[in-house]
Design a binder for these strands. Sequence first.
DNA 1: GAGGTTAGCTAACGCTCGTAAGTAACGCAG
DNA 2: CTGCGTTACTTACGAGCGTTAGCTAACCTC
Lengths: 198, 198
Amino acid sequence: MAPGAVGKSEAKTTVSPAAVRDAALTLFAERGYHGTALSQIAAELKIRTPSLYNHMRAKQDLLRDIVADTTEQVWADYEEAVEGVDDVAERLRNATRVYALRHATHRREALVVNRDIASLEEPARGNVLELRRRHAQAFRGLIEEAGGVDRESATLAAFGILEMCVSIARWFREDGPLTAEEVAAKYSEYALRIAGLA
Amino acid sequence: MAPGAVGKSEAKTTVSPAAVRDAALTLFAERGYHGTALSQIAAELKIRTPSLYNHMRAKQDLLRDIVADTTEQVWADYEEAVEGVDDVAERLRNATRVYALRHATHRREALVVNRDIASLEEPARGNVLELRRRHAQAFRGLIEEAGGVDRESATLAAFGILEMCVSIARWFREDGPLTAEEVAAKYSEYALRIAGLA
DNA sequence: GAGGTTAGCTAACGCTCGTAAGTAACGCAG
DNA sequence: CTGCGTTACTTACGAGCGTTAGCTAACCTC
């Protein structure tokens, strides 16, 4: 049987790799990678520190998995969002909406990615940065293509829009007055204004 | 004579508290507070680690000074920017401009403040957060007062504008195609659009 | 009910960290 | 010239880190 996969009768009180990753995610988001000790992750799971090694290979692997998976999902979101949409303004709106939405619904992942990329070792770091660059350039391309602003401003606007979305992870609360979808709709509207399309 | 204050003939090859703080600032901005060891700061200054203690009291003090000073200057910028300006849209433009400008001209400070506030110990942490809250609420107040959007959207817009400016510290380069002033002008224009005033 | 697998434990490792103490060299004030 | 203040040095400490090894007890399969 696959390790950690609990059978029909649930809740065997045993820790799984996914549980370790989830605890790490919470703590990394709160205190940062270097600010989090394995002993704290273990405490969260109510086991001793060395027992963690039954479910992971190294601390760095936890960070790598979190950052790599998240970055790939961001790119997948983007591709799906613009696929088959003809109007360029609508492509920009969709791309911004899914990006904003992810930052509202996956706050911890977003915080870790944006704070601890520097703590990621090569070659993972290079791969992640490459994917991010591709995403940012795709955004800039959309804004240029839309034609509301000149080329230099497009770069500026792209950075502004992306980072505005990233910021959502810092203040959004699930029990707040607005749902994630509402916030995403607002911010994609802001994006069009910044790009000179509204 | 004041310690570290070099006489008329400059460059006595001796390290000053300001030099330690500057080296710490650079490294904190690059690798984060917990990711930076005092040994690295010492290496940057070409002295041994314990010699740092001739110019500082503790590592935490370096962080506290950097973050506290920067936060206070941000607030001072704001007050000066809105002082005596009647038109509310112009107040918003000015406030955004100086905030953006500071993030372009003090990139390292901005990166540290936005990344390592969690590593700041009390009571400094509380004080800083209080000042930041005041600044954010002032922005929200400006947007509400301007009346381009409803109250809930004002909060959203304020966060978006502020974080858009913060992002400048992440990509701005002094030798890039745009000056800090040009970027600040652009972003304060974006702010007005987000606030529904353009 | 025996054998193998798993997940927990304790103990211990090598390392690096931030910090303290004591000492030698240098420069200015008397 | 003498003496004091300053700065950097070496040495050392205690603590905490990530990680490894080895044991034990529980469970799953047959």
